[in-house]
Every structure is written in C-alpha cells, then in structure tokens.
C-alpha cells in the first residue's frame, strides 16, 4: 500500500550568524491513509521544523516528500494540509465562529456557507453558545478547541497537529483526548500529532514515533496494538504499561542527550566568556 505521507532522508539546518544548527538529520517516516501517528521527542529536536517542512512553509536542505506516492516540490502542499501550529494563533478581532471559518474562508468557501457549517459543528467541538465570543474571553482549553475546529473545518485529508493540548491542565487534556478520538473516528483523516506526553502518544496513536535529540531523526517506530475505541482506563492495562516502559527508556535517553548538549553549550559559552 502506498503511504499517504512518506518522508525520505529529510535534513534541515539553520544558520544564525556564524553558528549552524543541524536540526533534522536524515528523517524517514511514513503515515498510512487514515492512520493516526503520534510523534514524541525531546524539546528542540526539530518536531515543529519537520511540520513546517511538510506543510511547505520551509524548504528542506535535502530529502523527499511524497504524498500518495507522488513527489512534492517543497511549497506545493501549501493549502493542501490542515495544519495546527503549536500556538493557537487565534485572531483577536474575529469571533469564535469567524476564527473557526478562517481556513475555509481563505479556501474560497463563501462566508455565509462556512458560518452555517461552523454553527452546525460548534456543539461537536464543545463550543455551543460561544460563537460570538472573542478569543480574549475564552479559557485556554476553549481557545485550543477553536484552533482545532479551524483545522478540522479546513477540509483536507491530512492533518498535522503540533501539540494541540500542550497548554492544558491534566483533566481538560484527558477530556480533549477522548473527544479528539471520537471526532477522528468519525472522519478517519490521516493525522500526524506531536506531543510531549507519552501517555497521550500511546492513547491516541496507531503508531508512536520517537525522535532523537538534535539533530533529529526517527529513533523508534512502535505499533500500538490496542483495539479501538479505547476506553480512558486503557492506560492502566499491562500492554499499555509495557509499551510505555519501552518508549520511556528511549525518550529518556534522548532527553538526557539533549540536556547534556544544552549544558555543554552553556558551559562552552561560559568558558568562552572567561
């Protein structure tokens, strides 16, 4: 089967003044049609950069991106992927409803049609009755849901979600995860989902990808053999715990490397300053 998304040998560096940061080094990954794949990795390993490249906002240094088996020049996917960035980026002058239809509106859907469609799905996103509120009047969780709704209303087969629940407290987060699975199971779009939270990665994903410390590449690719629909208490099941143990070991390894690298560069700077 041709994978929906296939990334081959992708590399990317950034130059800031004289220093170069190799951010991604030879990333390879595939996501099948209708699959929900989660991506975890230490902070700063290049997850968001990877998304920016797939979406078409950044050109890679090297590597290929194939969608449905077809190679994509770097900015050809602009407008083709439903992307939710790490920050919610709601526009303060737009109401909940008008923020939710932003992507659809830019896509050329008439405002009235888009608004009607958004009104119909407000409840599904837990935003019923809040259509004329402004982002500044919402809680963090609601803002995230508006951003998610905006992403869902952009009718594309592929969704890239960058830590959509990063800013939420544990309880809201658990509720949102359950809710996201429900919504997703109704639509079965292809999802690539970045998170810092291993429980979340396992609970949501068909597969979990673990990224290495910078320069980032895919360190581990683990199938999650847990039947759907998944009950919230699945996180206490032995299979779950076993998987978590294995993933944790790899991630901790990489996080330690990232941490050590950070300390090293700090002490280098200090040494240089003396």
């Amino acid at each position: 089967m041709t994978p929906k998304i296939c990334v081959k040998n992708l590399s990317k560096h950034f130059t800031a003044g004289v220093s170069t940061v190799q951010t991604l080094d030879n990333v390879n990954l595939r996501v099948n049609d209708g699959e929900f794949v989660t991506l975890v990795g230490p902070s700063g390993c290049g997850k968001s950069t990877l998304f920016n490249i797939i979406v078409g906002l950044l050109p890679p240094d090297e590597g290929l991106l194939l969608i449905d088996g077809e190679q994509q020049p770097h900015d050809h996917l602009l407008g083709q992927v439903a992307f939710m960035p790490q920050r919610d980026m709601l526009l303060p002058w737009r109401t909940v409803l008008d923020n939710a239809i932003l992507a659809a509106e830019i896509d050329g859907v008439a405002r009235a049609t888009a608004r009607q469609r958004a009104m119909d799905s407000l409840d599904r996103f837990g935003l019923g009755g809040f259509e004329s509120h402004y982002p500044s009047q919402l809680s963090g969780g609601m803002r995230q849901r508006v951003a998610l709704m905006r992403t869902f209303m952009f009718d594309r087969e592929i969704m890239l979600l960058d830590e959509p629940f990063g800013a939420l407290d544990a309880l809201t987060r658990a509720l949102m995860q359950r809710w996201l699975l429900e919504v997703w199971e109704g639509e079965k779009r292809t999802v690539l989902f970045i998170t810092h939270d291993i429980d979340e990665a396992i609970y949501l994903g068909d597969r979990v990808l673990v990224m290495s410390a910078r320069p980032g590449h895919i360190k581990l690719d683990k199938e999650v053999a847990l039947a759907r629909p998944r009950a919230p208490d699945i996180i206490t099941r032995p299979e779950f715990v076993e998987l978590k143990r294995e993933l944790l070991a790899t991630i901790e390894d990489e996080s330690l490397k990232a941490f050590a690298a950070m300390n090293r560069s700090v002490s280098d700077k200090e040494a240089g300053g003396r």
């Binding site: 906002l57 602009l78 407008g79 960035p85 526009l91 830019i106 896509d107 952009f154």
Partner: peptide, 23 residues
C-alpha cells in the same frame, strides 16, 4: 507564525494583507 498559518491555508499575499496584516 501567523503569516505561516495563513499560507498553510493557501492564502495569497493579498488575502494575507486583507485578512491578517491590515486588521
């Protein structure tokens, strides 16, 4: 980031001007 978001929706420079930058 905001400009990137609109570009990811396929927005033209004109759409970015009128829906994001001018407001």
């Amino acid at each position: 980031g905001e400009i990137g978001l609109l570009r990811s929706f396929g927005a033209s420079p004109t759409a970015i001007l009128f829906k994001l930058q001018l407001p």
